[in-house]
Design a protein around this nucleic acid. Structure first.
Length: 569
RNA sequence: GCGCUUGUAGCUCAGUGGAUAGAGCAUCUGGUUGCGGUCCAGAGGGUCGCAGGUUCGAUUCCUGCCAAGCGCACCA
Protein backbone atom coordinates (compact mmCIF):
# COMPACT_ATOMS: atom_id res chain seq x y z
CA UNK A 1 0.00 0.00 0.00
CA UNK A 2 2.78 2.32 1.03
CA UNK A 3 4.68 1.69 -2.17
CA UNK A 4 1.56 2.15 -4.28
CA UNK A 5 0.89 5.53 -2.71
CA UNK A 6 4.50 6.61 -3.13
CA UNK A 7 4.43 5.62 -6.78
CA UNK A 8 1.14 7.40 -7.29
CA UNK A 9 2.52 10.62 -5.83
CA UNK A 10 5.58 10.38 -8.02
CA UNK A 11 3.39 10.02 -11.08
CA UNK A 12 1.30 13.00 -10.06
CA UNK A 13 4.37 15.16 -9.62
CA UNK A 14 5.66 14.17 -13.05
CA UNK A 15 2.29 14.91 -14.63
CA UNK A 16 2.10 18.28 -12.94
CA UNK A 17 5.56 19.11 -14.17
CA UNK A 18 4.70 18.17 -17.74
CA UNK A 19 1.53 20.22 -17.67
CA UNK A 20 3.49 23.14 -16.29
CA UNK A 21 1.59 23.45 -13.03
CA UNK A 22 4.81 22.72 -11.18
CA UNK A 23 8.25 23.83 -12.34
CA UNK A 24 10.91 21.23 -13.17
CA UNK A 25 13.04 20.01 -10.30
CA UNK A 26 14.63 16.82 -9.11
CA UNK A 27 11.91 14.86 -7.37
CA UNK A 28 12.98 14.24 -3.76
CA UNK A 29 12.50 10.93 -1.98
CA UNK A 30 8.79 10.45 -1.48
CA UNK A 31 7.89 8.92 1.82
CA UNK A 32 4.49 7.70 2.84
CA UNK A 33 4.38 6.69 6.48
CA UNK A 34 2.18 5.61 9.31
CA UNK A 35 1.29 8.70 11.29
CA UNK A 36 2.25 8.43 14.91
CA UNK A 37 -1.17 9.48 16.03
CA UNK A 38 -4.10 7.42 14.78
CA UNK A 39 -6.37 10.42 14.46
CA UNK A 40 -4.33 11.32 11.39
CA UNK A 41 -5.50 8.32 9.42
CA UNK A 42 -3.77 5.20 8.12
CA UNK A 43 -1.05 6.79 6.06
CA UNK A 44 0.45 10.23 5.82
CA UNK A 45 2.97 12.02 3.70
CA UNK A 46 4.87 15.23 4.17
CA UNK A 47 5.69 15.60 0.48
CA UNK A 48 4.06 19.02 0.25
CA UNK A 49 6.25 20.28 3.08
CA UNK A 50 9.28 19.05 1.18
CA UNK A 51 8.14 20.53 -2.13
CA UNK A 52 6.96 23.87 -0.82
CA UNK A 53 10.32 25.54 -1.09
CA UNK A 54 11.15 24.03 -4.48
CA UNK A 55 7.96 25.25 -6.10
CA UNK A 56 7.77 28.51 -4.16
CA UNK A 57 4.27 27.86 -2.92
CA UNK A 58 3.02 27.40 0.60
CA UNK A 59 2.91 23.80 1.84
CA UNK A 60 -0.87 24.02 2.23
CA UNK A 61 -1.31 25.15 -1.37
CA UNK A 62 0.78 22.24 -2.65
CA UNK A 63 -1.10 19.82 -0.44
CA UNK A 64 -4.42 20.90 -1.88
CA UNK A 65 -3.20 20.27 -5.42
CA UNK A 66 -2.31 16.71 -4.39
CA UNK A 67 -5.52 16.23 -2.48
CA UNK A 68 -7.62 16.55 -5.65
CA UNK A 69 -5.45 14.15 -7.61
CA UNK A 70 -5.20 11.53 -4.87
CA UNK A 71 -8.88 10.94 -4.17
CA UNK A 72 -9.79 7.32 -4.88
CA UNK A 73 -12.24 4.67 -3.87
CA UNK A 74 -10.03 2.89 -1.29
CA UNK A 75 -10.09 5.95 0.87
CA UNK A 76 -12.80 7.25 3.04
CA UNK A 77 -11.14 10.62 2.62
CA UNK A 78 -7.87 12.30 1.80
CA UNK A 79 -7.35 15.18 4.16
CA UNK A 80 -4.99 18.11 4.28
CA UNK A 81 -3.97 19.49 7.63
CA UNK A 82 -1.68 22.20 8.90
CA UNK A 83 1.13 22.73 8.25
CA UNK A 84 0.70 20.67 5.09
CA UNK A 85 0.35 16.98 5.89
CA UNK A 86 -1.70 14.86 3.55
CA UNK A 87 -3.51 12.12 5.45
CA UNK A 88 -5.21 9.07 3.99
CA UNK A 89 -8.19 7.49 5.70
CA UNK A 90 -9.38 4.06 4.66
CA UNK A 91 -12.95 3.04 4.15
CA UNK A 92 -14.57 0.28 6.21
CA UNK A 93 -14.49 -1.97 3.18
CA UNK A 94 -10.72 -1.87 3.22
CA UNK A 95 -10.57 -2.85 6.89
CA UNK A 96 -12.91 -5.77 6.29
CA UNK A 97 -10.68 -6.87 3.46
CA UNK A 98 -7.72 -7.04 5.84
CA UNK A 99 -9.55 -9.36 8.23
CA UNK A 100 -10.66 -11.60 5.38
CA UNK A 101 -7.16 -11.73 4.02
CA UNK A 102 -5.62 -12.80 7.32
CA UNK A 103 -8.26 -15.47 7.84
CA UNK A 104 -7.60 -16.89 4.41
CA UNK A 105 -3.89 -16.47 3.98
CA UNK A 106 -2.45 -16.23 7.46
CA UNK A 107 -0.62 -13.31 8.95
CA UNK A 108 -0.75 -11.19 5.85
CA UNK A 109 2.85 -11.49 4.82
CA UNK A 110 3.04 -11.38 1.09
CA UNK A 111 6.22 -12.29 -0.65
CA UNK A 112 6.28 -9.94 -3.54
CA UNK A 113 8.08 -11.42 -6.50
CA UNK A 114 10.55 -8.61 -6.89
CA UNK A 115 11.71 -9.01 -3.30
CA UNK A 116 15.26 -10.29 -3.21
CA UNK A 117 15.70 -13.51 -1.29
CA UNK A 118 19.09 -14.28 0.09
CA UNK A 119 21.00 -17.12 1.62
CA UNK A 120 22.03 -15.86 5.01
CA UNK A 121 23.95 -17.28 7.94
CA UNK A 122 23.24 -16.10 11.45
CA UNK A 123 25.88 -17.03 14.00
CA UNK A 124 24.85 -16.72 17.61
CA UNK A 125 25.15 -18.16 21.10
CA UNK A 126 28.88 -18.96 20.77
CA UNK A 127 29.22 -20.34 24.29
CA UNK A 128 32.58 -21.14 25.80
CA UNK A 129 32.98 -24.63 27.12
CA UNK A 130 34.27 -24.88 30.69
CA UNK A 131 32.37 -21.74 31.64
CA UNK A 132 28.89 -21.19 32.98
CA UNK A 133 26.12 -20.49 30.47
CA UNK A 134 24.78 -17.34 32.08
CA UNK A 135 21.92 -14.92 31.59
CA UNK A 136 23.93 -12.76 29.19
CA UNK A 137 24.20 -15.79 26.92
CA UNK A 138 20.44 -16.13 27.13
CA UNK A 139 19.98 -12.68 25.67
CA UNK A 140 22.27 -13.59 22.81
CA UNK A 141 20.28 -16.74 22.09
CA UNK A 142 16.97 -14.85 22.17
CA UNK A 143 18.16 -12.14 19.82
CA UNK A 144 19.88 -14.59 17.48
CA UNK A 145 17.04 -17.04 17.21
CA UNK A 146 14.55 -14.23 16.70
CA UNK A 147 16.62 -12.81 13.85
CA UNK A 148 16.72 -16.28 12.30
CA UNK A 149 12.93 -16.61 12.59
CA UNK A 150 12.26 -13.17 11.18
CA UNK A 151 14.60 -13.64 8.22
CA UNK A 152 12.98 -16.96 7.43
CA UNK A 153 9.54 -15.44 7.75
CA UNK A 154 10.47 -12.78 5.26
CA UNK A 155 11.53 -15.39 2.77
CA UNK A 156 15.27 -15.73 3.16
CA UNK A 157 17.06 -19.03 3.35
CA UNK A 158 18.76 -19.00 6.73
CA UNK A 159 21.44 -21.19 8.26
CA UNK A 160 21.60 -20.81 12.01
CA UNK A 161 25.11 -21.40 13.23
CA UNK A 162 26.85 -21.84 16.53
CA UNK A 163 30.56 -21.29 17.15
CA UNK A 164 31.79 -23.16 20.17
CA UNK A 165 34.66 -21.69 22.16
CA UNK A 166 36.29 -24.99 22.96
CA UNK A 167 39.86 -23.76 23.11
CA UNK A 168 41.75 -20.74 24.29
CA UNK A 169 43.09 -19.35 27.51
CA UNK A 170 39.96 -19.96 29.53
CA UNK A 171 40.15 -23.67 28.79
CA UNK A 172 43.79 -23.80 29.81
CA UNK A 173 42.96 -22.06 33.08
CA UNK A 174 40.23 -24.53 33.84
CA UNK A 175 42.48 -27.47 33.01
CA UNK A 176 45.16 -26.01 35.24
CA UNK A 177 42.63 -25.65 38.06
CA UNK A 178 41.56 -29.26 37.60
CA UNK A 179 45.09 -30.65 37.75
CA UNK A 180 46.11 -28.32 40.57
CA UNK A 181 43.18 -28.61 42.97
CA UNK A 182 41.23 -31.67 41.90
CA UNK A 183 43.93 -34.14 40.89
CA UNK A 184 42.77 -36.61 43.58
CA UNK A 185 39.10 -36.30 42.86
CA UNK A 186 37.32 -38.88 40.76
CA UNK A 187 35.81 -36.49 38.26
CA UNK A 188 33.34 -39.01 36.91
CA UNK A 189 31.41 -39.04 40.16
CA UNK A 190 30.76 -35.30 40.18
CA UNK A 191 27.10 -34.49 39.86
CA UNK A 192 26.62 -31.18 38.08
CA UNK A 193 29.63 -31.42 35.84
CA UNK A 194 29.14 -28.24 33.79
CA UNK A 195 28.52 -26.20 36.91
CA UNK A 196 31.60 -27.73 38.47
CA UNK A 197 33.73 -26.69 35.50
CA UNK A 198 32.49 -23.14 35.75
CA UNK A 199 33.44 -23.13 39.41
CA UNK A 200 36.91 -24.55 38.75
CA UNK A 201 37.44 -21.96 36.03
CA UNK A 202 36.69 -19.03 38.29
CA UNK A 203 38.72 -20.51 41.16
CA UNK A 204 41.65 -20.99 38.84
CA UNK A 205 41.41 -17.47 37.44
CA UNK A 206 41.30 -16.05 40.94
CA UNK A 207 44.25 -18.15 42.12
CA UNK A 208 46.39 -17.26 39.11
CA UNK A 209 45.81 -13.54 39.45
CA UNK A 210 46.52 -13.67 43.21
CA UNK A 211 49.68 -15.72 43.05
CA UNK A 212 52.58 -15.09 40.61
CA UNK A 213 53.93 -18.60 41.17
CA UNK A 214 50.62 -20.04 39.94
CA UNK A 215 50.83 -17.76 36.97
CA UNK A 216 54.10 -19.39 35.94
CA UNK A 217 52.71 -22.87 36.48
CA UNK A 218 49.73 -22.02 34.38
CA UNK A 219 51.89 -20.67 31.55
CA UNK A 220 53.79 -23.95 31.45
CA UNK A 221 50.56 -25.92 31.31
CA UNK A 222 49.12 -23.70 28.61
CA UNK A 223 52.20 -24.23 26.48
CA UNK A 224 52.00 -27.99 26.96
CA UNK A 225 48.34 -27.94 26.10
CA UNK A 226 48.94 -25.92 22.93
CA UNK A 227 51.71 -28.36 22.01
CA UNK A 228 49.28 -31.27 22.25
CA UNK A 229 50.17 -32.92 25.58
CA UNK A 230 48.33 -36.24 25.51
CA UNK A 231 47.05 -36.26 29.09
CA UNK A 232 45.82 -32.67 28.90
CA UNK A 233 44.16 -33.31 25.56
CA UNK A 234 42.26 -36.28 26.88
CA UNK A 235 41.16 -34.30 29.94
CA UNK A 236 40.08 -31.50 27.62
CA UNK A 237 38.08 -33.82 25.39
CA UNK A 238 36.32 -35.37 28.32
CA UNK A 239 35.42 -32.13 30.08
CA UNK A 240 34.45 -30.42 26.85
CA UNK A 241 31.73 -33.01 26.41
CA UNK A 242 30.33 -32.09 29.80
CA UNK A 243 29.86 -28.53 28.70
CA UNK A 244 28.46 -29.55 25.34
CA UNK A 245 25.89 -31.75 27.04
CA UNK A 246 24.85 -28.85 29.21
CA UNK A 247 24.50 -26.56 26.18
CA UNK A 248 22.37 -29.12 24.39
CA UNK A 249 20.09 -29.35 27.42
CA UNK A 250 19.63 -25.61 27.49
CA UNK A 251 18.98 -25.37 23.75
CA UNK A 252 16.47 -28.16 24.00
CA UNK A 253 14.67 -26.42 26.83
CA UNK A 254 14.61 -23.20 24.82
CA UNK A 255 13.61 -24.94 21.57
CA UNK A 256 16.74 -23.74 19.83
CA UNK A 257 18.11 -25.69 16.89
CA UNK A 258 21.37 -25.00 15.06
CA UNK A 259 21.96 -26.07 11.47
CA UNK A 260 25.72 -25.76 11.66
CA UNK A 261 28.35 -25.98 14.35
CA UNK A 262 31.80 -24.49 14.17
CA UNK A 263 34.56 -25.08 16.70
CA UNK A 264 37.41 -22.80 17.65
CA UNK A 265 39.72 -25.77 18.02
CA UNK A 266 39.18 -26.60 14.35
CA UNK A 267 39.40 -23.02 13.09
CA UNK A 268 42.65 -22.72 15.02
CA UNK A 269 44.25 -25.32 12.77
CA UNK A 270 43.01 -23.53 9.66
CA UNK A 271 44.28 -20.26 11.07
CA UNK A 272 47.77 -21.64 11.51
CA UNK A 273 47.84 -22.72 7.87
CA UNK A 274 46.67 -19.29 6.79
CA UNK A 275 49.30 -17.41 8.76
CA UNK A 276 52.21 -17.62 6.27
CA UNK A 277 50.01 -16.13 3.57
CA UNK A 278 48.95 -13.25 5.83
CA UNK A 279 52.59 -12.55 6.63
CA UNK A 280 53.62 -12.79 3.00
CA UNK A 281 50.90 -10.40 1.88
CA UNK A 282 52.10 -7.95 4.50
CA UNK A 283 48.78 -7.91 6.31
CA UNK A 284 50.25 -9.43 9.45
CA UNK A 285 53.71 -8.79 10.86
CA UNK A 286 56.00 -9.64 13.74
CA UNK A 287 56.02 -7.22 16.63
CA UNK A 288 57.45 -7.61 20.11
CA UNK A 289 57.62 -11.34 19.52
CA UNK A 290 53.96 -11.62 18.65
CA UNK A 291 52.19 -11.62 15.29
CA UNK A 292 49.95 -8.62 14.87
CA UNK A 293 47.91 -6.71 12.33
CA UNK A 294 48.55 -3.00 12.56
CA UNK A 295 45.35 -1.11 11.80
CA UNK A 296 46.40 2.25 13.21
CA UNK A 297 46.02 3.93 9.82
CA UNK A 298 42.33 3.02 9.91
CA UNK A 299 42.05 4.20 13.49
CA UNK A 300 41.38 0.65 14.59
CA UNK A 301 44.43 0.01 16.75
CA UNK A 302 46.30 -3.24 16.68
CA UNK A 303 45.08 -6.81 16.77
CA UNK A 304 47.29 -9.60 18.08
CA UNK A 305 46.87 -12.81 16.12
CA UNK A 306 49.53 -14.95 17.77
CA UNK A 307 50.97 -14.56 21.26
CA UNK A 308 54.71 -14.35 21.68
CA UNK A 309 54.64 -17.88 23.16
CA UNK A 310 53.07 -19.08 19.91
CA UNK A 311 49.49 -19.38 21.15
CA UNK A 312 46.87 -18.69 18.49
CA UNK A 313 44.32 -16.01 19.42
CA UNK A 314 40.71 -15.50 18.40
CA UNK A 315 41.47 -13.19 15.49
CA UNK A 316 43.38 -15.83 13.58
CA UNK A 317 40.51 -18.28 14.07
CA UNK A 318 37.82 -15.92 12.87
CA UNK A 319 39.49 -15.29 9.51
CA UNK A 320 39.21 -18.88 8.24
CA UNK A 321 35.77 -19.10 9.84
CA UNK A 322 34.50 -16.22 7.72
CA UNK A 323 35.98 -17.78 4.58
CA UNK A 324 34.44 -21.12 5.40
CA UNK A 325 31.02 -19.58 5.91
CA UNK A 326 30.95 -17.96 2.51
CA UNK A 327 32.83 -20.56 0.52
CA UNK A 328 31.46 -23.78 1.96
CA UNK A 329 27.90 -22.64 2.61
CA UNK A 330 27.52 -20.32 -0.34
CA UNK A 331 25.91 -17.58 1.68
CA UNK A 332 25.42 -14.00 0.54
CA UNK A 333 25.23 -12.39 3.94
CA UNK A 334 26.78 -13.24 7.28
CA UNK A 335 25.37 -11.99 10.55
CA UNK A 336 27.05 -12.46 13.90
CA UNK A 337 25.29 -11.73 17.17
CA UNK A 338 27.87 -10.75 19.77
CA UNK A 339 28.34 -8.83 22.99
CA UNK A 340 28.71 -5.13 22.17
CA UNK A 341 32.07 -5.10 23.94
CA UNK A 342 33.46 -6.96 20.95
CA UNK A 343 32.46 -4.28 18.48
CA UNK A 344 35.97 -2.86 18.05
CA UNK A 345 37.24 -6.36 17.50
CA UNK A 346 34.68 -7.03 14.79
CA UNK A 347 35.56 -3.80 13.03
CA UNK A 348 39.17 -4.97 13.08
CA UNK A 349 38.24 -8.41 11.82
CA UNK A 350 36.15 -7.06 8.95
CA UNK A 351 38.94 -4.68 7.99
CA UNK A 352 41.50 -7.49 7.98
CA UNK A 353 39.25 -9.60 5.78
CA UNK A 354 38.88 -6.64 3.46
CA UNK A 355 42.66 -6.20 3.27
CA UNK A 356 42.86 -9.90 2.55
CA UNK A 357 40.68 -9.24 -0.48
CA UNK A 358 37.53 -10.65 1.03
CA UNK A 359 34.67 -8.29 0.20
CA UNK A 360 31.45 -9.72 1.54
CA UNK A 361 28.40 -8.53 3.37
CA UNK A 362 29.24 -9.11 7.00
CA UNK A 363 27.24 -7.67 9.84
CA UNK A 364 27.57 -7.82 13.57
CA UNK A 365 24.69 -7.21 15.91
CA UNK A 366 25.93 -6.04 19.26
CA UNK A 367 23.90 -6.23 22.41
CA UNK A 368 24.51 -4.95 25.92
CA UNK A 369 24.96 -7.03 29.04
CA UNK A 370 22.34 -8.43 31.35
CA UNK A 371 22.40 -8.23 35.12
CA UNK A 372 19.86 -9.18 37.68
CA UNK A 373 18.08 -6.28 39.33
CA UNK A 374 19.79 -5.49 42.61
CA UNK A 375 22.57 -7.91 41.73
CA UNK A 376 26.20 -7.01 41.27
CA UNK A 377 27.73 -6.86 37.84
CA UNK A 378 28.68 -10.18 36.40
CA UNK A 379 31.76 -11.67 34.95
CA UNK A 380 32.46 -15.33 34.51
CA UNK A 381 36.07 -14.67 35.39
CA UNK A 382 35.03 -13.37 38.78
CA UNK A 383 32.58 -16.19 39.14
CA UNK A 384 29.61 -14.09 40.19
CA UNK A 385 27.51 -14.82 37.14
CA UNK A 386 23.91 -15.89 37.29
CA UNK A 387 23.67 -19.13 35.35
CA UNK A 388 20.82 -19.40 32.85
CA UNK A 389 19.60 -22.48 34.64
CA UNK A 390 19.27 -20.59 37.90
CA UNK A 391 17.30 -17.76 36.33
CA UNK A 392 14.89 -20.17 34.67
CA UNK A 393 14.38 -22.00 37.97
CA UNK A 394 13.88 -18.78 39.85
CA UNK A 395 11.34 -17.38 37.43
CA UNK A 396 9.50 -20.70 37.22
CA UNK A 397 9.31 -20.74 41.00
CA UNK A 398 7.92 -17.24 40.99
CA UNK A 399 5.23 -18.23 38.49
CA UNK A 400 4.30 -21.20 40.66
CA UNK A 401 4.01 -19.02 43.73
CA UNK A 402 1.90 -16.33 42.12
CA UNK A 403 -0.27 -18.56 39.99
CA UNK A 404 -0.53 -21.94 41.72
CA UNK A 405 -3.19 -23.09 39.27
CA UNK A 406 -0.98 -22.50 36.20
CA UNK A 407 -0.88 -25.76 34.19
CA UNK A 408 2.58 -25.13 32.78
CA UNK A 409 4.62 -22.75 34.91
CA UNK A 410 7.83 -23.37 33.02
CA UNK A 411 6.27 -22.35 29.74
CA UNK A 412 5.04 -19.13 31.29
CA UNK A 413 8.43 -18.57 32.88
CA UNK A 414 10.32 -19.05 29.62
CA UNK A 415 7.90 -16.71 27.86
CA UNK A 416 8.39 -14.16 30.63
CA UNK A 417 12.17 -14.33 30.36
CA UNK A 418 12.26 -14.15 26.58
CA UNK A 419 9.84 -11.29 26.49
CA UNK A 420 11.55 -9.52 29.37
CA UNK A 421 14.81 -9.48 27.44
CA UNK A 422 13.49 -9.04 23.91
CA UNK A 423 11.45 -5.98 24.77
CA UNK A 424 14.63 -4.00 25.33
CA UNK A 425 16.52 -2.62 22.39
CA UNK A 426 19.95 -4.20 21.97
CA UNK A 427 21.80 -1.06 23.03
CA UNK A 428 20.15 -0.89 26.40
CA UNK A 429 21.57 -2.64 29.40
CA UNK A 430 19.10 -4.93 31.06
CA UNK A 431 18.55 -5.25 34.75
CA UNK A 432 16.33 -8.25 34.73
CA UNK A 433 13.57 -8.01 37.30
CA UNK A 434 12.28 -11.48 38.13
CA UNK A 435 9.14 -10.35 39.92
CA UNK A 436 8.19 -7.80 37.28
CA UNK A 437 8.72 -10.21 34.41
CA UNK A 438 6.13 -12.71 35.58
CA UNK A 439 3.34 -10.26 36.24
CA UNK A 440 0.26 -10.69 34.13
CA UNK A 441 -0.27 -6.98 33.83
CA UNK A 442 2.14 -4.52 32.27
CA UNK A 443 4.68 -5.09 29.56
CA UNK A 444 5.26 -8.78 30.11
CA UNK A 445 5.25 -12.05 28.24
CA UNK A 446 2.44 -13.50 30.35
CA UNK A 447 0.24 -10.52 29.54
CA UNK A 448 0.61 -11.21 25.83
CA UNK A 449 0.25 -14.94 26.31
CA UNK A 450 -2.91 -14.27 28.27
CA UNK A 451 -4.36 -12.23 25.41
CA UNK A 452 -3.61 -15.11 23.08
CA UNK A 453 -5.20 -17.64 25.43
CA UNK A 454 -8.23 -15.41 25.57
CA UNK A 455 -8.63 -15.41 21.78
CA UNK A 456 -8.40 -19.18 21.90
CA UNK A 457 -10.93 -19.28 24.72
CA UNK A 458 -13.45 -17.23 22.78
CA UNK A 459 -13.11 -19.41 19.69
CA UNK A 460 -13.55 -22.55 21.80
CA UNK A 461 -16.62 -21.11 23.43
CA UNK A 462 -17.99 -20.08 20.06
CA UNK A 463 -17.68 -23.59 18.67
CA UNK A 464 -19.53 -24.84 21.74
CA UNK A 465 -22.28 -22.33 21.06
CA UNK A 466 -22.74 -23.66 17.57
CA UNK A 467 -20.65 -21.22 15.56
CA UNK A 468 -18.44 -22.69 12.91
CA UNK A 469 -15.52 -20.32 12.96
CA UNK A 470 -13.18 -21.94 10.51
CA UNK A 471 -15.74 -22.13 7.73
CA UNK A 472 -15.24 -19.62 4.94
CA UNK A 473 -17.69 -16.80 5.03
CA UNK A 474 -17.89 -13.20 4.08
CA UNK A 475 -16.80 -10.74 6.70
CA UNK A 476 -19.54 -8.38 7.67
CA UNK A 477 -18.44 -6.89 10.93
CA UNK A 478 -20.80 -4.37 12.37
CA UNK A 479 -22.07 -1.60 10.17
CA UNK A 480 -20.51 0.82 10.60
CA UNK A 481 -17.35 -0.56 12.20
CA UNK A 482 -16.89 0.19 15.86
CA UNK A 483 -13.88 2.28 16.81
CA UNK A 484 -12.39 -0.61 18.80
CA UNK A 485 -12.75 -2.92 15.84
CA UNK A 486 -10.99 -0.50 13.56
CA UNK A 487 -8.17 0.05 16.02
CA UNK A 488 -7.62 -3.68 16.32
CA UNK A 489 -7.66 -4.23 12.55
CA UNK A 490 -5.30 -1.32 12.04
CA UNK A 491 -2.84 -2.97 14.39
CA UNK A 492 -3.17 -6.30 12.60
CA UNK A 493 -2.43 -4.65 9.30
CA UNK A 494 0.96 -3.45 10.49
CA UNK A 495 2.39 -6.93 10.97
CA UNK A 496 3.83 -7.58 7.54
CA UNK A 497 5.69 -4.29 7.25
CA UNK A 498 6.97 -4.81 10.79
CA UNK A 499 8.48 -8.18 9.87
CA UNK A 500 10.10 -6.63 6.85
CA UNK A 501 11.52 -3.82 8.92
CA UNK A 502 12.96 -6.16 11.54
CA UNK A 503 14.48 -8.32 8.82
CA UNK A 504 16.38 -5.26 7.62
CA UNK A 505 17.28 -3.59 10.90
CA UNK A 506 17.52 -6.58 13.27
CA UNK A 507 15.65 -4.50 15.84
CA UNK A 508 13.93 -7.45 17.37
CA UNK A 509 12.51 -5.51 20.30
CA UNK A 510 9.98 -4.00 17.92
CA UNK A 511 8.25 -7.37 17.80
CA UNK A 512 7.73 -7.25 21.54
CA UNK A 513 6.29 -3.76 21.37
CA UNK A 514 4.00 -4.77 18.56
CA UNK A 515 2.79 -7.80 20.50
CA UNK A 516 1.99 -5.61 23.49
CA UNK A 517 0.11 -3.09 21.43
CA UNK A 518 -1.85 -5.81 19.69
CA UNK A 519 -2.73 -7.46 22.99
CA UNK A 520 -3.80 -4.07 24.31
CA UNK A 521 -6.03 -3.37 21.36
CA UNK A 522 -7.53 -6.81 21.60
CA UNK A 523 -8.36 -6.49 25.29
CA UNK A 524 -9.86 -3.12 24.62
CA UNK A 525 -11.98 -4.50 21.78
CA UNK A 526 -12.98 -7.41 23.95
CA UNK A 527 -14.22 -5.09 26.64
CA UNK A 528 -16.27 -3.00 24.26
CA UNK A 529 -17.61 -5.44 21.72
CA UNK A 530 -19.48 -8.56 22.68
CA UNK A 531 -18.36 -11.32 20.36
CA UNK A 532 -20.54 -14.33 21.04
CA UNK A 533 -24.15 -13.28 20.81
CA UNK A 534 -26.67 -15.82 19.61
CA UNK A 535 -29.18 -13.03 19.04
CA UNK A 536 -27.01 -11.45 16.37
CA UNK A 537 -25.33 -14.31 14.60
CA UNK A 538 -24.01 -12.33 11.65
CA UNK A 539 -22.22 -9.82 13.86
CA UNK A 540 -20.91 -12.67 15.97
CA UNK A 541 -19.56 -14.48 12.94
CA UNK A 542 -17.81 -11.36 11.76
CA UNK A 543 -16.28 -10.60 15.13
CA UNK A 544 -15.19 -14.20 15.49
CA UNK A 545 -13.26 -13.76 12.28
CA UNK A 546 -11.61 -10.74 13.77
CA UNK A 547 -10.73 -12.70 16.90
CA UNK A 548 -9.35 -15.45 14.72
CA UNK A 549 -7.25 -12.99 12.76
CA UNK A 550 -5.92 -11.61 16.02
CA UNK A 551 -5.08 -15.09 17.21
CA UNK A 552 -3.19 -15.80 14.00
CA UNK A 553 -1.12 -12.63 14.07
CA UNK A 554 -0.48 -12.65 17.81
CA UNK A 555 0.51 -16.30 17.60
CA UNK A 556 2.93 -15.62 14.80
CA UNK A 557 4.46 -12.67 16.59
CA UNK A 558 5.06 -14.74 19.69
CA UNK A 559 6.36 -17.51 17.49
CA UNK A 560 8.94 -15.23 15.92
CA UNK A 561 10.15 -14.35 19.40
CA UNK A 562 10.28 -18.02 20.30
CA UNK A 563 7.54 -17.64 22.89
CA UNK A 564 4.91 -20.34 23.26
CA UNK A 565 1.38 -19.24 22.50
CA UNK A 566 -0.83 -21.18 24.91
CA UNK A 567 -4.39 -22.22 24.06
CA UNK A 568 -5.08 -22.22 27.78
CA UNK A 569 -3.19 -20.85 30.72
C1' G B 1 44.42 10.11 26.68
C1' C B 2 41.68 8.22 22.28
C1' G B 3 37.29 5.72 20.52
C1' C B 4 32.22 3.63 20.86
C1' U B 5 27.45 3.80 23.31
C1' U B 6 23.89 5.95 26.44
C1' G B 7 21.44 10.38 28.92
C1' U B 8 13.28 11.14 27.47
C1' A B 9 7.62 11.13 33.45
C1' G B 10 9.21 9.24 40.54
C1' C B 11 10.93 4.05 38.48
C1' U B 12 11.64 0.56 33.99
C1' C B 13 11.79 1.63 29.01
C1' A B 14 9.73 2.94 23.74
C1' G B 15 9.80 6.68 19.82
C1' U B 16 10.50 10.57 15.99
C1' G B 17 13.42 16.06 10.81
C1' G B 18 7.30 18.02 11.38
C1' A B 19 0.88 18.09 13.72
C1' U B 20 -0.87 18.19 21.69
C1' A B 21 6.58 13.60 23.06
C1' G B 22 4.34 7.82 24.29
C1' A B 23 3.70 2.82 27.12
C1' G B 24 4.10 -0.14 31.62
C1' C B 25 4.93 0.11 36.95
C1' A B 26 3.82 3.19 41.10
C1' U B 27 -0.25 7.00 42.79
C1' C B 28 -5.49 8.47 42.43
C1' U B 29 -10.72 7.76 40.28
C1' G B 30 -14.32 4.86 37.80
C1' G B 31 -16.27 0.08 35.39
C1' U B 32 -18.03 -6.72 36.31
C1' U B 33 -25.93 -10.34 37.24
C1' G B 34 -18.27 -11.45 32.88
C1' C B 35 -17.58 -14.23 25.52
C1' G B 36 -11.61 -16.40 31.39
C1' G B 37 -11.68 -8.77 35.45
C1' U B 38 -4.75 -12.42 35.32
C1' C B 39 -9.23 -7.27 32.13
C1' C B 40 -10.93 -2.28 30.65
C1' A B 41 -11.74 3.27 30.91
C1' G B 42 -9.81 7.82 32.89
C1' A B 43 -6.53 11.50 35.86
C1' G B 44 -2.09 13.63 37.55
C1' G B 45 3.12 13.54 36.32
C1' G B 46 8.17 15.96 31.00
C1' U B 47 12.75 22.88 30.01
C1' C B 48 13.32 14.78 25.67
C1' G B 49 21.51 16.02 30.06
C1' C B 50 23.47 21.43 28.96
C1' A B 51 24.95 25.13 25.17
C1' G B 52 25.49 26.47 20.24
C1' G B 53 24.70 25.40 14.79
C1' U B 54 22.03 23.56 10.15
C1' U B 55 16.56 23.88 8.82
C1' C B 56 10.41 26.90 7.17
C1' G B 57 10.54 23.38 11.48
C1' A B 58 15.29 19.74 15.95
C1' U B 59 13.83 15.85 21.45
C1' U B 60 15.53 13.62 16.54
C1' C B 61 20.98 15.73 12.26
C1' C B 62 26.07 18.39 13.29
C1' U B 63 29.72 20.57 16.91
C1' G B 64 31.26 21.52 21.90
C1' C B 65 30.59 20.55 27.06
C1' C B 66 28.80 17.61 31.40
C1' A B 67 27.58 12.70 33.40
C1' A B 68 27.47 7.25 33.20
C1' G B 69 28.93 2.53 30.94
C1' C B 70 32.16 -0.09 27.79
C1' G B 71 36.52 -0.81 24.65
C1' C B 72 41.62 0.38 23.41
C1' A B 73 48.69 -5.75 22.15
C1' C B 74 49.18 -11.18 23.68
C1' C B 75 41.08 -13.05 27.11
C1' A B 76 36.74 -14.09 23.61
Amino acid sequence: MKKILEQKIRTIIEELQQSGVLPLFVVPEIRVERPKDEQFGEYTTNISLMLAKLVKKSPMEVAHIFQEKLASEEFEKVEVMNPGHINFYFSDAYFREIVTHINQKGSGIDYSVEEKREKVMVEYSQPNTHKEFHIGHLRNVFIGSTIVNVLRKSGHEVISANYIGDTGTHIAKCLWGLTKFYADVNLDTIENKAEFLGKVYSEATQAISDNPAYEDEFKVLQKDFDAGDKILISLWEKTKEWSMDEFENIYKQLHIVFDAYFFESIEEESGKKLLPELLKKGIAKQSEGAVIVDLEEYNLGVLVLVRKDGGVLYGLKDIPLAKEKFEKFNIERSIVVVDVRQSLYFKQLFKILELYGFHKEMIYCGYEFVALKDGESMSSRKGNVIPARVLIERVTESVRKQFPESPNPEMVALGAIRFGMLRHSSVSKIEFDVEMSVRFDGATGPYVQYAYARTAGILRKAEESGFSVSEESIIVLSEPLQMKEIELIRELSKFSSLVKEVAETYEVHKLAHFALKLADKFHSFYNDCKVIDTEHRDVSMARLKLVRATKIVLGETLGLMGIDAPEKM
